[in-house]
Amino acid sequence: MLYTLLCYNNEDVVWSWTKEEDDAVMARLSAVHEKLTREGKLGPSLRLLPTTAATTIRGAQNLVIDGPFAETKEQLLGFYVIDVPDLDAALAVARELSAANPTSCYEIRPVALYVPEQRPDAPTGMVKNY
C-alpha cells in the first residue's frame, strides 16, 4: 500500500537555519532515505520552496492569487511517497524521519491514486541538488 508522509514545520524557523544546520538535518535524513531505498520502500520525495514562492488558482474564474492556499502557523515543507504493507509500517518510517528531523511533524496519508513518473528521461535515484 502507498502512503504519503507530509512534513510540516514552521517555515520561519526552517528557512532561517544556517547552511550548517540545514546540511546537518539533510545529512541525517539522507541516511534514512538511503536505508528506505535499500529496503525498497521509498518512492518520489520532494522538498518544497517557501510558501512565499507559491501561487494559487482558486474558484470558478480561475483567479490567480499570490501565496499559498491557506495561511497556517505551520506549513507543508515537503513529502514522501512510501510503499509499505500497513499503517504500523508507515508509522515506523515516519518515526525514523522524525528522529532525523525532530522539530518537524509528519502526517501519514494513504494514497488513493498514484501516477508514476512519465518523463522518458526522468532522473532516477536521489537528486542531490534539492
Binding site: 514552521n10 520561519d12 526552517v14 532561517s16 522539530t103
Partner: peptide, 15 residues
C-alpha cells in the same frame, strides 16, 4: 522535549 535551537529560531522568527 523541544529542541532548544528550534526555540531560538522560533523566538527570532516571531520577534
Amino acid at each position: 522535549m523541544t529542541d532548544i535551537a528550534w526555540i531560538h529560531g522560533a523566538l527570532t522568527g516571531a520577534r
